[in-house]
Nucleic acid binder design. Structure first.
Length: 703
DNA sequence: GTTTACGCATCCCCG
DNA sequence: ATGCGTAAAC
């Protein structure tokens, strides 16, 4: 068995209490950087050390990557058996369970998971079928409809309630919207499709309606832990309650101040209501911060102090010193990009690895300008958030074929696949599908369909490839064969830019390599979409140093030595969509809080004072209200050194000697203390202390 | 009657 | 860069 772990030495008293309390419901309120992950990791280790079989522990996290990471750490603390702990997201667990128990509610094991785009396509199809898309009507669009349906499911409200509260202007269409909702539900059921919400809802139903399943669950998972509980919703809370009915051993961990997923139905009041749902719950607060310097925490505390509703807590640290956050007022976006790039190069001179720096922003497109600047300067980066690989049209095309192989009644995928054929439009596709839906072998129907000469060949080729793929077994082989077939279609449909898209197909093929089961591959693509590969200078190998660009949402739970938050202008952050509704605005504030608490040592806040707004052209942007609210002592403005005073000291020409006085763009005046070989010097700067600088990167001027 | 090409507006965050 | 509506082409 594992080695003894000295919990008392590794953890502070509050963390220790959370780790040592094994039975009953527990709510851990964990401030940013308070060692939340550490606490979960040690608790897993503790449970296993106490003799609980690892497979009887369930760890629900926000992403599957987070679960894997935690279990890896637990394995390092105790022993490898910790990796056998069941871990994943609510959705991945639901998927897994529904493949096993779905027959109880009329689903086979090979149902198809619809991602957002698929769900929207389905709604659009039904909307036209019901004649609700004639022009001139102000009927909601597919994305609004899906959001509406999703909120109803996740919040357990009626469509009418949702409309009244959030979309009163669509109330007149209530009967049609309800009808469409019913049609959508029926359509999915009939064709073995589930969207993200169905995964949760159906799993909940199975649990609710079948006591024996609940009992089996309670036996299978004796201890349940839920991370990021502030971002769960009512339905997820109910699922946890039912799964834990037999024993009540549930620990949830979260921070109400970091709840940023309300748009997805999450409700931070969930965490406030946990004690009601689980009577007798023990509440433990983690308030000591181990991540950031005090000046950063001061700013973070000031941001969240203005939040209206929260568990009161105040972050503190025992760390001494640290620089105040820096505020940079940029002329425009280009100036902001230049500023960020220059600071990054300086940090690299100081020896901060690129991988310890992140640039965060509200929306994925806020970094477009910066991405160009970084590419120009050869600074490698990866971008998280924004478009996913699976959302690209050409990837969806290929995936649709694979889905058909697995679930021949996935009419949505048939629709997409048929439209790719030359000479086939929506009308013909519908006709073919009408023949398919009742047939015992849909692929055979393709051959017999009375096709017009213009697309007959295409249809036959499709039938052939589907049959061929059905008979292959390796996922990679199937995909490779499919890509061969798809190539000419790709060139025809996306003739403008197909070479770019070919590379995405390559990435998909690489991804498929590790899968032995097609249905696992497809489920993972939907449940854990890989990031887009088209983003700029993606490093070839994982260990190559690179900077992180990320939306704040995707940066949840992560930390860096230096963090830049950019585009802090009204209308961007807070988003223009959020400023009218007070609840939305509160969420924006929490989002800003999440952003600033990612930083350990340095925090840079940037806002461009002019910007381009589509339709309006170049406009003056006001600084974000979140910046205006901050008292000026909490940060210091960045002072730029005038261009003309710069004169580079290159390693060849300028032989520096100890005692020389130099000028550095960020640290100002300094005195050379030591010359370390040809390229490095040690310089003492007033107010910043001693720095080792690489002359190859540093722009030093001798005074 | 259908399909396709083209020009138009629009774009937040996500399992 | 996708998603829509309209007009030209099959």
């Amino acid at each position: 068995m594992g080695r003894r772990v000295d919990y008392a030495r590794e953890l502070n008293p509050a963390q220790l209490e959370a780790v040592r309390t094994l039975f009953g419901p527990i709510l851990v309120i964990a401030g940013a950087g308070s060692g939340k992950t550490r606490t979960l990791v040690y608790r897993v280790a503790r449970l296993v050390e106490e003799g609980v079989p690892p497979e009887r522990i369930l760890l629900l996290t926000f992403t599957r990557k987070a679960a894997r990471e935690m279990l890896r750490r637990a394995a390092m603390v105790l022993d490898a058996s910790c990796e056998r702990v069941a871990g994943g997201t609510f959705h991945s667990l639901a998927h897994q369970m529904l493949r096993k128990y779905g027959h109880l509610i009329g689903y086979g094991p090979n149902f198809t998971v619809l991602d957002r785009g698929d769900a929207e396509d389905a709604i659009n199809l039904l909307r036209s079928a019901l004649g609700l898309s004639e022009k001139g009507r102000r009927f909601p669009k597919k994305d609004t409809l899906l959001a509406l349906f999703s909120k109803a499911v996740n919040q357990g409200r009626t469509l009418e309630e949702i409309l009244e509260r959030e979309y009163p202007h669509f109330l007149e269409h209530l009967p049609e919207i309800e009808r469409l909702f019913g049609e959508y539900q029926r359509y999915k059921r009939e064709h073995q499709l589930m969207d993200y919400d169905d995964l949760l809802l159906n799993w909940y139903r199975v649990l609710l309606e079948h006591r024996w399943v609940r009992e089996e669950m309670a036996r299978r998972f004796e201890f349940i832990m839920v991370d990021e509980y502030q971002d769960t919703n009512r339905l997820q809370a109910e699922i946890v309650r039912l799964m834990a009915e037999g024993h009540g051993n549930v620990m949830v961990v979260g921070d109400d101040s970091q709840s940023i997923y309300a748009f997805r139905g999450a409700n931070f009041r969930n965490i406030l209501e946990f004690p009601k749902l689980f009577p007798g719950a023990r509440i433990i607060k983690l308030e000591e911060n181990y991540r950031s310097t005090q000046p950063i925490l001061d700013l973070a505390n000031a941001v969240i102090a203005r939040a209206r509703e929260k568990y009161t807590k105040c972050l503190f640290t025992r760390r001494k010193g640290g620089r105040k956050p820096v505020l940079y007022r940029a002329r425009d976006e280009a100036d902001q990009s230049r500023f960020v790039a220059e600071r990054i190069l300086e940090l690299r001179e100081e020896g901060v690895p690129l991988s310890e720096i992140a640039v965060l922003f509200r929306a994925a497109f806020h970094s477009f300008d910066l991405e160009l600047e970084l590419a120009k300067r050869d600074i490698p980066f990866v971008k998280y958030g924004g478009l996913k690989l699976i959302e690209a049209a050409h990837i969806k095309d290929v995936v649709a074929h694979l889905r058909i192989v697995l679930n021949p009644y996935d009419l949505l995928s048939w629709h997409r696949v048929l439209l790719l054929l030359e000479g086939v439009g929506p009308r013909t596709a519908e006709k073919i599908i009408a023949h398919l839906r009742t047939a015992p072998d849909p692929v055979e129907v393709l051959r017999q369909f009375p096709a017009r000469p213009s697309y007959e060949k295409g249809l036959l080729r499709l039938a052939e490839i589907l049959k061929e793929i059905r008979e292959l077994s390796s996922v990679e082989e199937r995909l490779a064969r499919l890509i061969d077939y798809y190539q000419p279609l790709l060139e025809r449909v996306y003739h403008d830019d197909y070479p770019k898209r070919e590379r995405d197909l390559e990435s998909l093929l690489t991804l498929s390599h590790k899968y032995r089961d097609l249905s696992d591959f497809l489920a993972d693509l939907a449940l854990e979409p890989p990031e887009s590969s088209v983003a700029g200078l993606e490093p070839e190998t994982e260990d190559e140093e690179h900077l992180v660009l990320s939306t704040i949402h995707s940066a949840k739970g992560l930390e860096w030595h230096t963090v830049f938050v950019i585009s802090l202008s009204e209308g961007r952050f807070p988003s223009a969509y959020a400023v009218r509704d007070e609840e939305d605005l509160e969420e924006e504030r929490r989002l800003f809080y999440v952003a600033v608490t990612r930083a350990r040592e340095n925090l840079f806040l940037c806002h461009p004072v002019t910007g381009y707004v589509p339709g309006e052209g170049r406009v003056i942007l006001k600084p974000s209200r979140f910046l205006e609210e901050l008292s000026p002592e909490l940060y210091e403005p960045f002072r730029e050194v005038p261009e003309e005073t710069r004169e580079e000291v290159s390693p060849r020409e300028g032989v520096l000697r100890p005692g020389d006085v130099v000028w550095h763009p960020r640290f100002g005046e300094g005195e050379v203390r030591d010359v370390l070989g040809e390229e490095k010097v040690r310089v003492y700067f007033l107010g910043h202390g001693e720095k080792t600088l690489h002359l190859r990167f540093a722009r030093l001027e001798r005074l």
